[in-house]
């Protein structure tokens, strides 16, 4: 492969995993845990499990689906409150339904071609899953859960559709490994939650001047707010 392209790919992969690391950081995972998960994503990308053989193959990629699903289930299980768990679950269900309906019915005919879409299909579905996840869950964690499980559930719905329609196709969960729409969706979801959350804080005026300790900068107050209240709001 040409050197320039190799450098481009390496840079893209480094930025991608750097962003993924920050996303996992936002999930209150330690640096080490985040690195272990990224390692599992990468190594797991090379392994597929055949879950169902007939009438339609259902394959699961370890890095592209099993590890992300595991992380989301862990996030749901360790959520602080029952309400947060409920919101995360609802976010996943609504996001899954939204993704399936969008791909199957809304973007139909010529609009199903990638050249008509505002974003590439991989990013479009991830972004939509993220937005729905964030709106339904209203936190970074719920957005992450909604983004990842939304794509997974939409793929499961595709499997069911193949079985019902008798098409001898192949349904795949996270087949593109670490670069699958499933992982993109989780990253985009948290990214959107981050930007929307920060914008909301800005529009809300941020911390009042009186909230600042003597000598504390506005930035410091913002960071403190993010650390305390911000986690409740977005975390």
């Amino acid at each position: 492969m040409p050197t320039g392209t190799v450098v481009l790919l390496v840079a893209a992969i480094l930025v991608y995993f750097g962003v993924l690391h920050r996303v996992l950081d936002r999930m209150r995972l330690t640096d080490r845990a985040a690195l272990v998960i990224i390692g599992l994503l990468l190594v797991g990308s090379f392994f597929n499990l055949l879950l169902v053989r007939r009438p339609v193959h259902l394959l699961v990629n370890v890095g592209g689906a099993l590890v992300p699903i595991g992380v989301t289930l862990w996030l749901l299980a360790t959520a602080d409150t029952a309400a947060e768990k409920r919101r995360g679950t609802v976010a996943a269900l609504v996001s899954g339904a939204g993704i399936y309906v969008l791909g199957r019915y809304v973007l139909s005919g010529r609009a199903a071609e990638p050249e008509t879409m505002l974003l590439e299909p991989t990013y479009l579905f991830g972004a939509v899953a993220g937005v729905i996840g964030y709106l339904a869950g209203r936190s970074r964690r719920a957005a992450f859960v909604g983004g990842i499980l939304g794509i997974v559930l939409a793929d499961v719905a595709h499997f069911v559709e193949l079985v019902l329609s008798g098409i001898r196709g192949r349904a795949w969960l996270g087949g593109a490994g670490a670069f699958d729409a499933t992982v993109f969706a989780g990253i985009l979801a948290v990214g959107l939650a981050e930007v929307v959350g920060e914008t909301r804080e800005r529009l809300g005026g941020g911390p009042a001047p009186g909230d600042r300790a003597p000598g504390q900068t506005r930035l410091g107050a913002l960071q403190e707010l993010e650390h305390d209240g911000g986690e409740r709001e977005h975390g």
Binding site: A112, P121, W172
Partner: peptide, 10 residues
């Protein structure tokens, strides 16, 4: 459908 490229990527 619109998800065909998402599937073919795999």
């Amino acid at each position: 459908d619109a998800a065909a490229y998402r599937r073919s990527r795999r």
